[in-house]
Simulated assay, not measured.
Amino acid sequence: MCGRYATTRSSGTLSQLFEAYDDTDGRHRPDWNVAPTKPVPVVRVDDAGERALSLARWGLLPPWATSPSAGARMINARSETVATSRAYAGPFARRRCLVPADGWYEWARTDGGKQPYFLTRADGDVLALAGIWSVWRGPDGPWLTCSVLTTAATGALAGVHERMPVLLPPTRWEPWLAPTGDPSALLGADEEWLAGLEIRPVGAAVGNVRNSGPELTARVPDVPAPRRAREDPRSTAEMPLF
């Protein structure tokens, strides 16, 4: 799954990277420890067909949801069932988005206990997580909400966790946002692009959602390899673990 991530680029930088106009009204703030239900930047196509950088509450709320608390359980949508899910099928077909991230966090078992890792591009490039969005109309007005699609982890990533967000290389950004076409065809892994990821051990402070700062993504030394990486024969892709 993807339950915690970092997105620290400014709205101006993200607007340029994704060729979108800034619709955040200055409300976006860098966050090194994004948790469910927080407002997050997403790139979507608006009603006029323009590409917009908007803020959405992380945790999709279907129109029939009676309380915003339901969104905390809907931060991820499984790519294997998203097209047939009652809650997710509509957004998947018509309201897809990109969720910009520096990287995401996972916790793995090691000989020293649970160890957090930051999974990020080794070259520092932005990640675009495949997302879907919806509008929920609550008593205080409409809310833009979103979910991140997940898939089975591949290669060395499977050594940390069995699931991972669907990562879209730049060549898939435009077709993913397009309101037509078959989005299912874009969900397969791009192994060459995934080979540029780094699995970085980080400190335990990220476990507290109240903590945020660049120190959370700093590498820590002398960390044992994840047990799954040693035990799982699928974890054979050439990807930097440390």
Rank of each mutant, 00 (worst) to 15 (best):
M1C: 10
M1F: 13
C2W: 01
C2V: 02
C2E: 04
T7R: 12
T7V: 14
T8F: 10
R9T: 06
T13D: 15
L14M: 11
S15E: 04
Q16D: 14
L17S: 13
L17M: 15
E19C: 15
D22W: 11
D23E: 13
T24Y: 06
D25L: 13
D25Y: 10
R27P: 05
R29Q: 15
V34S: 02
V34C: 05
A35D: 12
P36Q: 11
K38M: 15
P41R: 05
D47N: 14
A48F: 10
G49M: 12
E50P: 11
R51P: 11
A52C: 10
A52W: 08
L53S: 04
L53I: 03
L55G: 08
W58C: 03
G59N: 00
L61M: 07
L61V: 04
L61P: 01
W64H: 12
W64I: 07
S67C: 10
P68A: 10
S69C: 14
A70I: 11
G71F: 03
G71N: 04
A72W: 12
M74K: 13
A77G: 01
R78E: 06
S79I: 04
S79D: 09
E80D: 11
T81L: 10
T81V: 08
T84A: 14
T84C: 13
T84N: 11
Y88S: 05
G90L: 15
A93H: 09
R96T: 04
R96F: 02
C97P: 00
L98D: 08
V99D: 02
P100G: 01
D102A: 09
W104A: 00
E106V: 01
W107Y: 03
A108Y: 00
T110S: 07
G113V: 02
G113A: 02
K114Q: 09
F118D: 03
F118K: 06
T120R: 09
R121W: 01
R121K: 01
A128M: 00
A128D: 03
L129K: 07
V135I: 15
V135P: 11
R137K: 09
G138M: 06
G138I: 03
P142N: 05
L144W: 09
T145W: 07
L149F: 07
T151D: 02
T151R: 06
A152N: 12
A153E: 04
T154R: 14
A158S: 08
G159A: 13
G159Y: 04
R163S: 05
M164H: 00
L167W: 00
L168Q: 00
L168T: 00
L168S: 02
P169A: 09
P170F: 06
E174K: 15
P175D: 05
P175H: 05
L177Y: 06
T180C: 12
S184N: 15
A185D: 13
A189K: 10
E191A: 14
E192K: 14
L194Y: 04
L194T: 05
L197E: 04
I199Q: 01
R200E: 07
P201E: 01
V206K: 02
G213A: 05
L216V: 11
R219Q: 09
P221W: 09
D222H: 12
P224C: 09
A225E: 12
R227N: 15
R228D: 10
A229R: 06
R230T: 13
D232A: 09
R234W: 13
T236A: 15
A237V: 07
M239N: 07
P240S: 09
